[in-house]
Nucleic acid binder design. Structure first.
Lengths: 370, 370
DNA sequence: GCAAGCTTTGAATCGCATT
DNA sequence: AAATGCGATTCAAAGCTTG
């Protein structure tokens, strides 16, 4: 079945509000849609962040928190009820060979994943969106929260879902597409703004939806997004020749989404190129060599002429007498220089003499890069 | 408290089977351990029912591998009970400021995460272990499952957990450590083998435990691993000068673990030292700089961009027009910020330009420290 | 006009010791 | 137990201003 035939077939078979945004509660609107009628459901539900007081950056400016009412739930139990409700309707609407995608963070994704399994879906993969430019942890109290998690599930273990394996492999330079994807957060020209401020606090990047729709739908397939927001799903679906249905409560988001999707054009060659993520730069931190046993804490390093010496500590810092710091900082401090490339400055001794620690970095890269 | 003192203190305070492996069911053995007695629990529980074999109900009976829908529910329910049971005991044993780490895959991590939250733990981060050399998806039916997920949680929202921020930042070449970590899977010399075959199917890499223990424990802290397997947690704990307790049912794993840990060498105490936060440095009152002549009353200070200026008074307060106060208070007031670090906010002019007054503090510390 | 530097910002569960 | 004071804390990308 070709593209056009498929579209005609889908339209004829059921009465769906295709390529439209429905305003209101997502569960109520889903109740109005027929059984087994959509090919994919992409959902970006509220994360239930449970944020505390105000957060200030080191420079004194305030972080613009997600404090919208739609993200507030009284208890985990209330959030679980909400999740079960929309997942149940979604399952009824989904075709037997359709798939579900949900995105979330550690605040909600475990509850969502449990509910997905309890509702009878079969998880196919969890996917990590690694943010190339996440917001830092300003207070230095935790690890930088640098990713979000997506769940991809079919309606059951035996379902024959769509997975465009070749397309994914091609997109990834002839290597199987992995479960960790790197994209920047949504910003720049792509980020919808009104009067200088963002329209939606959590707009998703089109690159993310592009990969999902390309991987798991065929041209003409119908994608339902019950938390449509500013319509990333609709915009990408239109560009990729897929049909879409959006549901959202907020008139402001709906207006912005309609305008955006109207302006979206079917994809051309040049756009494909820009949508692809740049290949991740292999970057090796000095600490990795220690964690991986290429260099032992307690090892003594020297510069090439053995004028300075320092001892490696467990955290990858170096110690020289009363001074200590990273390989770069300590090298600079000892030389009285403004900066120093620790990789080429510091050397270790092996059977064949003195070698720069950069040699160990090369060894590590060779051992770990495909 | 130094390393040795800390170890003595911990040993004296409670009667723990330190640096030993307990053979048998983890929940039963945990019941024998005292309340609030360990600093960290690292758990690598069985991942899933469908993979079969090593999942047991709390009563010790084995869960059958089944694929019927209602049985699936039965299976999930059994897994949830099992998870709640060990998490509950773990919580009782954990010190109020201790933390929990759990590792899992999409088969079980959502259920575990939900149980962690329901038990009252407070999730601090979820961490992604990105495998640099994952097993490919042979059939080409899904994305390559190239990661596992870890959950890091405290006992509650207000708990004051250990996080060695500076050590992590140093380990990562002076950038904040992110929530996505890349390591190779466990192989090569590190992988325990007997007669050419691997001893344990899911042996974790030491690099993973190294980062966890370095980030979230102090030397001498006690780590409990209720699913000890071949003892990666124990081997790394010994290396890093931490104490450990392991629990496992399988005699084969216990033997291998004991041999392995006996062969592990503790690092020299000086190498275990990590970079400290400035908070751990001795405090210097601003007034000390004036009393010691490093800064003269009447000196004009400005911020880095010279937007505000203030005059140093004899008592170490600053004056700016009608406002005055400590270096911190005045900095905060002028910016309209809730707080301000006066040491880095205020600058003085010397021959080479504008410098933060923190430079003077460093000069003072260097001159007065032994 | 272009380069260099400065400013802003992004789904965030973001301090701690003393009084 | 609650309030107060000290002072620790950010990365990458985009947009804008200055030279």
């Amino acid at each position: 079945m070709g593209v056009i035939e498929r579209i005609r077939h889908n339209v004829a078979a059921v009465e769906l509000p295709l390529d439209r945004i429905l305003k209101g509660d997502c569960v109520e609107h889903m109740r109005g849609l027929p059984d087994k009628s959509v090919d994919m459901i992409f959902a970006d539900p509220p994360y239930n962040l449970q944020l505390g007081g105000d957060l200030f950056r080191p420079d004194g400016s305030q972080v613009d928190a997600v404090d919208d009412d739609w993200d507030k739930f009284d208890t985990f139990a209330a959030y679980d009820r909400f999740t079960r409700d929309w997942l149940t309707e979604a399952r009824r609407i989904l075709k037997d060979n359709g798939t579900l995608w949900v995105i979330g963070s550690y605040h909600n994704i475990f509850r969502v994943g449990t509910a997905v399994q309890d509702a009878g879906y079969w998880i196919l993969n969890d996917i990590i969106w690694r943010k190339s430019n996440p917001m830092p942890n300003f207070k230095g109290t935790r690890f930088t929260n640098a990713h979000e998690t997506l769940i991809w599930a079919s309606k059951g273990e035996k379902a024959r879902y769509t997975f465009n394996y070749r397309a994914m492999k091609t997109l990834n330079d002839e290597l199987q597409m992995r479960s960790d994807w790197e994209f920047p957060i949504c910003g720049g020209q792509e980020r919808l703004k009104k009067g200088g401020t963002k329209v939606h606090p959590t707009q998703k990047p089109e690159a993310l939806l592009y990969r999902i729709l390309l991987a798991c739908t065929k041209p003409g397939d119908v994608v339902l997004d019950p938390f449509f927001g500013t319509g990333t799903t609709g915009a990408v679906a239109k560009r990729l020749g897929r049909r879409w249905i959006g549901i959202d409560r907020e008139g402001l988001y709906i207006e912005a989404a309609q305008e955006r999707i109207a302006a979206a054009l079917p994809l051309d060659e040049s756009a494909v190129v820009t949508m692809q993520s740049p290949r991740a730069q292999p970057k090796v931190a000095f600490g990795l060599l220690i964690e991986n046993g290429l260099l032992k804490p307690g090892t003594v390093l020297t510069d090439a002429r053995r004028r300075w010496r320092a001892t490696v500590r467990v955290d990858g810092s170096l110690e020289a007498g009363t001074e200590s710091g990273s390989i770069h900082k300590l090298g600079a401090a000892l030389q009285g220089a403004p900066s120093c490339n620790g990789w080429t400055f510091w050397h270790y001794e092996d059977a064949n003499g003195l070698k720069p620690i950069d040699a160990l970095r090369q060894t590590y890269l060779l051992a770990t890069q495909p």
